[in-house]
């Protein structure tokens, strides 16, 4: 295995991409990146870039998908051919992609106030543009922003982060080589500290789990602050412009 030669933490306590254990990758958040969607966003965490588009609430595409008293959430995940995702095959209906889609749906169903939109459908389309570990957490972050952009009522922001454990040292926000070598935990949480998703594919000592979960929730809080800043900036900018135009017209400028 090529990746086993990777030194997870070097003597200086740095990771293979020169981050410290608790350091997140560089984060970039963009809103309204898709012109035709009701809401969209593109989120980059390090070299992982995911774009999410939200359509709806709209009439369900399949009549069977309509629930009489709430909205149904439909998630579809696709991976671009050039994304470089070795761990997932790109075909639609691939088990790994379906699993990611199901995890996203389960994360957001309790957070979206679906009872406000009866008999309708909220469709979330995820496109992985480049993959370098942490597809699921990045996709969850992108979905949150896209839902906010679409003006769909949410209880709160949901943010997500992946964590790994090297010996006894937890590492935050794993890149692909680290993800391949370490037991990984994906946490999605509300700012209140409520965990909406905790997913693991490998075994982990129960004594370490609590520490990692707490750390993950804390990291999610950091991401939320950053998201809120971007959303507020955009809202303020647009509202100011619309106010100016309306006021200018009233005074007859």
């Amino acid at each position: 295995m090529a990746s086993s030669r990777l030194e997870i933490l070097n003597d200086g306590g740095l990771r293979h991409d020169a981050r410290r254990p608790y350091e997140l990758r560089s984060l970039s958040l963009e809103l309204s990146t898709h012109p035709n969607a009701d809401g969209s966003s593109t989120v980059s965490q390090g070299l992982t870039t995911v774009s999410a588009s939200v359509f709806g609430p709209r009439e369900p595409k399949q009549r069977a998908g309509s629930v009489h008293d709430k909205a149904s959430v439909v998630v579809e995940v696709g991976v671009a051919p050039w994304a470089g995702a070795r761990e997932v095959r790109r075909t639609r209906g691939d088990k790994r992609l379906l699993e990611i889609a199901a995890a996203i749906r389960q994360t957001f169903e309790p957070v979206i106030m679906t009872h406000l939109y009866p008999r309708s459908e909220i469709a979330v389309h995820i496109q992985v543009i480049s993959a370098d570990g942490g597809i699921l957490p990045t996709a969850i972050n992108a979905t949150t922003l896209a839902l906010v952009d679409a003006g769909i009522s949410l209880i709160d922001y949901v943010t997500s982060l992946s964590l790994g454990l090297h010996l006894t040292q937890p590492l935050l926000d794993l890149s692909a080589p680290e993800e391949a070598d370490l037991p990984t935990l994906v946490v999605a949480a509300l700012p209140s500290g409520k965990v909406t998703l905790a997913q693991m594919e490998t075994r982990l000592h129960v004594d370490r789990f609590e520490e990692m979960l707490t750390l993950g929730v804390e990291g999610c809080g950091v991401l939320k602050t950053e998201m809120d800043r971007v959303v507020k900036d955009r809202t303020t900018r647009v509202v100011e412009r619309m106010d100016k135009v309306i006021q200018g017209r009233i005074t007859g400028d």
């Binding site: 809120d228 509202v239 100016k244």
Partner: peptide, 12 residues
Amino acid sequence: GSSTNRGIVSPG
């Protein structure tokens, strides 16, 4: 009021 003191909020 002017746009600056118009309350702008985000979810939660």
